[in-house]
């Protein structure tokens, strides 16, 4: 039996002797690479070209009719007050949201890290918001934040005697509402990443610190934080990218209102691309957004590399 198998194996080897490892690699690699080229690189280059034209996918019979306008779209955007105010608005959303998610997520992870019983169960429960579709989250929060009949105001006003807050229609509160809802959904993500980082910190470091009678703060600052920070930075990087391109929550919760006080960049881009069908300008907005996010990511990746190269600092 063993001999028969061996003979078969030898035969197979002889039959496929021409199939080298390198060739096998090519067989698996090329289709994937080509697919990537078609579905990722081509649209990227194509939209870059369109961003230098006055093309409107809706108004022009063909892309051949588009006129080359050079940097006019970029000039228009970079000198447009509205475009910059959309940028500011996006920053007003991204910075507090990521900060809130970071502090809450990391804080909860620190607490959970000390738990011994039921940690897995509670972690699973806390992760539920993250598993929901953003549209669904936005729809039920829209009901909950309704000023008149929403459950949030019911507690604030009827239970605690506070004022009625127009969460979604008052410009002071609309952005805060978006921050709260996004933080509700995505804090568990930071918590999960932090928990993974905290679990990986070697216990002997704490034991050594205990021998030296180090304070809790000392242990946190000099052991926990440096060792968890690479993972935390990755979490922050993901959240930065995600919040920067927030669309669903703003679309459903406020529709960009009141007025245009929550019309963040992706909403501005969407309306330009699919409302006005100004494809050329919308491509330029997309590219500016892409450049900003690449710059931000690079910055964080540098910090991440620095942290990795100086462990335990």
């Amino acid at each position: 039996m063993a001999n028969a198998l061996e003979v078969n194996s030898v035969k197979s080897r002889q039959r496929f002797s021409w199939l080298s490892d390198r060739m096998l690699m090519n067989i698996f690699l090329w289709p994937t690479l080509l697919m990537l080229l078609i579905i990722t690189l081509f649209p990227l280059i194509w939209s870059l070209y369109l961003s230098f034209t006055d093309y409107s996918v809706n108004a022009y019979p063909s892309w051949l009719d588009a006129r080359w306008v050079g940097s006019a779209n970029y000039n228009f955007l970079l000198t447009s007050k509205e475009f910059w105010s959309r940028f500011q608005l996006s920053a007003q959303f991204v910075i507090p949201t990521v900060a809130l998610e970071f502090f809450l997520g990391f804080g909860i992870a620190l607490l959970f890290n000390r738990m011994t019983k039921g940690r897995g169960f509670i972690t699973t429960l806390i992760m539920i918001p993250m598993m929901l579709t953003p549209i669904v989250v936005a729809l039920f929060w829209r009901f909950m934040l309704q000023a008149d009949i929403g459950v949030v105001n019911y507690f604030i006003r009827d239970v605690f005697g506070g004022p009625t807050i127009s969460w979604l229609s008052d410009r002071k509160w609309a952005m805060i509402s978006l921050v709260i809802v996004d933080a509700w959904q995505w804090t568990p993500f930071i918590m999960l990443i932090s928990l993974a980082g905290l679990s990986a910190v070697p216990k002997y470091l704490y034991e050594a610190a205990d021998v030296d009678r180090a304070s809790g703060w000392f242990k946190f600052w000099n052991i926990t934080l440096p060792l968890v920070s690479p993972l935390l930075l990755i979490g922050i990087l993901f959240r930065l990218m995600d919040t920067y391109k927030l669309f669903e929550l703003a679309w459903v919760l406020t529709g960009g209102g009141p007025g245009d006080f929550t019309k963040v960049l992706p909403l501005y881009l969407y309306r330009m691309a699919f409302g006005e069908f100004a494809t050329g300008k919308a491509s330029a907005v997309g590219y500016i957004m892409l450049i900003v996010i690449i710059a931000l990511s690079n910055l964080l990746i540098r910090v991440l590399n620095q942290t990795k190269s100086e462990p335990g600092k």
Binding site: Q146, D148, T164, S166, L168, S169, T254, G257, P258
Partner: peptide
């Protein structure tokens, strides 16, 4: 109208009328 009705769409108007408020 109801407080915070600045984001009211047809659905919210229907609710407000149909619940008799």
């Amino acid at each position: 109208g109801p407080e915070g009705a600045g984001n009211f769409s047809y659905g919210e108007v229907s609710d407000a009328m149909c619940n008799g408020k």
